[in-house]
Design a protein around this nucleic acid. Structure first.
Length: 577
DNA sequence: TGAGAGCCTG
DNA sequence: CAGGCTCTCA
């Protein structure tokens, strides 16, 4: 990309370009009294009613403190363990190997998060086993059955753990914020609830992590002895090598190169993929080192390169690390929405900067994610391990806030959208504030949750074409209006946040006004306005292609898009923001 | 020749 | 916003 730095003197050789009105606040200086990217402070997100009839959620917090209840919980866990011999309810009769991955696709992006949701059993491992050892006879079937049972048990435990996790977070939320008076009252009633629950939570997490590791190890050794070590080796090496290496690993022209051995099921468009069960949860113990690696070193952003950036291995690594840093308290939001000018150099530095998690910054920085920034929970690697094992659907359904939806620790093929959703549209519109002419390659790197096809690419390109069209029409309209109003000096035409033109554009691309438009965009809009003004005043509009030179100028003014736009699940988050 | 920009239309 | 169309470009 070239010409990223606005140099008005280039576009306006005369001195007019630099003659800013006295009261004009340079939009290029995000530090100038600009609010945070998402100034709206929202109360803590409503806690989940944890749904699905888990009776624990209905307990009064005080009761959870008493030993009797603790014993009851333990008894329940034990009963669950005893009941694990029951085979899980089959998803559907067509439980082909990719079926497990299709369960959570949210078509249209506005699917109710809790509707029609059956008790699900994570079956990724099953799918993997089925593909990796398709010829396995009865022993294989037995192994699958065993895996089913184990995973069923795990899911139950995880749900329960999740409940406890929420309660801890809820208590912390109430303690940290006093925005919700009712919660404060609750806190007063319950006294030392957080610590007690935390102890219980930690104990359970530990227990769960042990069981998880054992199950995963045994399953992998039984069903996938060779691939097990191979994949672990691969994944660990990728983690060690960092984003660049991972990118190279994944870059391969137009074809995605999955980490695991490709199979017919793994072709683009199909939902099944071996790495789904390999990354990350099924890695078992290796995930602990994974967590430790990222949490201790901070997170390196992946550079902005025209790579596909797209293999699940690469994408999930970045996304995981973002989440992990959030949960571990590394996340410190920057007003990323208003500072993109420096991004090229910033991106090239590759130093462990504070994470930019944009959708955590929209209303999304609510609840747990927000509080983690200030009061990180002492989550152990084992806890992260457990979270990682949560099926994305469970997380989305039960997680209380949009912020925690970031806990979708992986982008399994099941989450790859085969169609663009309203959430993607909203995201694209916000991206327009940074780039007016994104290449298809760039788009692919920012819509990682989309299964790109020729059609999808065209649609995205078309979206931006439509955005530009609207943008230029609006700017031209205001330029002509200014001319009619007798404006003489083009440089007096500056687009500020108060101007009508900005309101029109903001209304179109940022309807909810929950995104702080970067100052850079104001600059670009100002220059576009001036260009149109000058051209019309000079009578160039008589030429049918009089806009072309303007387009050419504007096309060089694209900014880098904050990395946070790549975050997993942000499209869905936007939709609900 | 395919991809993409831009224009027009609904 | 999408579809259809023309035009440009590599």
């Amino acid at each position: 990309m070239v010409g990223r730095n606005l140099d008005p003197t280039v576009l306006f050789p005369s001195s007019q370009a630099v003659a800013l009105p006295h009261d004009y606040k340079c939009g290029a200086c995000p530090g100038e009294g600009q609010a945070l990217a998402f100034p709206r402070t929202r109360g803590p997100a409503p806690l989940p009613c944890a749904g699905d009839g888990d009776q624990l959620s209905n307990q009064h917090p005080r009761e959870q403190l008493c030993d009797q209840h603790l014993r009851a919980k333990r008894a329940r866990v034990e009963s669950i363990i005893q009941g694990m011999s029951l085979p899980p309810t089959p998803q559907a009769s067509d439980t082909s190997l990719e079926a497990p991955f299709g369960h959570e696709r949210e078509r249209g992006g506005d699917m109710p998060q809790d509707s029609k949701r059956k008790p699900r059993v994570p079956q990724q491992g099953l799918g993997a086993a089925g593909r990796v050892a398709p010829t396995g006879g009865s022993s294989h079937a037995k192994g699958c059955q065993q895996l089913k049972e184990q995973l069923c048990f795990l899911e139950q435990q995880l749900r329960w753990l999740q409940e406890k996790f929420y309660q801890v977070c809820d208590s912390e939320d109430a303690a940290q914020t006093q925005e919700d008076s009712e919660k404060v009252e609750d806190r007063g009633d319950t006294g030392g609830l957080p610590s007690a629950v935390r102890v219980l939570s930690q104990a359970l997490k530990h227990e769960l992590s042990v069981v998880t590791s054992q199950v995963v190890d045994s399953v992998l050794k039984t069903l996938w002895p060779k691939a097990d070590s191979h994949i672990q080796k691969q994944h660990q090496s990728l983690l060690m090598l960092g984003p660049d290496a991972r990118r190279e690993y994944s870059a391969g022209g137009k074809c995605r190169k999955p980490l695991a051995k490709p199979s017919p099921m793994n072709a683009p468009g199909s939902l099944g993929s071996p790495q789904a069960e390999v990354l990350p949860g099924a890695l078992g113990k290796s995930l602990s080192s994974y967590v430790a690696s990222f949490s201790s070193k901070g997170v390196r952003k992946s550079s902005r390169v025209p790579s596909m950036g797209y293999s699940l291995g690469s994408a999930t690594s970045v996304q995981h690390s973002q989440l992990l840093s959030q949960l571990l308290g590394h996340g410190q939001h920057s007003p990323w929405g208003s500072d993109s000018r420096e991004s090229p150099s910033a991106l090239e530095r590759g130093c462990p900067e504070p994470l930019e998690l944009p959708w955590g910054s929209v209303k999304l920085r609510s609840s747990i994610v927000r509080q983690q920034q200030h009061h990180p929970l002492p989550l152990s690697p084992a806890s992260m391990e457990s979270l990682a094992l949560l099926p994305a659907g469970v997380v989305l359904r039960d997680m209380p806030s949009s912020g925690l939806a970031m806990c979708r620790l992986s982008l399994t093929p099941g989450q790859m959208q085969e169609a663009l959703t309203p959430g993607h549209l909203k995201k694209a519109k916000l991206m327009f504030f940074f780039t007016r002419y994104p290449s298809s390659t760039l788009l692919k790197t920012y819509f990682l949750d989309v299964q790109f096809s020729r059609c999808i690419t065209s649609q995205l390109i078309k979206w931006f074409s439509n955005f530009r069209e609207f943008y230029y029409i609006q700017v031209e309209k205001f330029a002509r209006q200014a001319l009619l109003e007798g404006v003489v000096d083009a440089c007096t035409l500056q687009v500020s946040r108060d101007s009508e033109l900005f309101r029109a554009l903001n209304m179109h691309y940022n309807k909810g006004n929950d995104f702080e438009v970067p100052g850079r965009f104001l600059e670009v809009a100002s220059l576009t306005l001036q260009e149109f003004f000058s051209a019309v005043r000079a009578g160039k509009d008589a030429d049918p292609s009089w806009k072309k030179p303007i387009y050419k100028i504007i096309s060089k003014l694209d900014s880098d898009i904050p990395e946070g736009f790549k975050a997993a699940g942000c499209s869905q988050e936007l939709l609900h923001s």
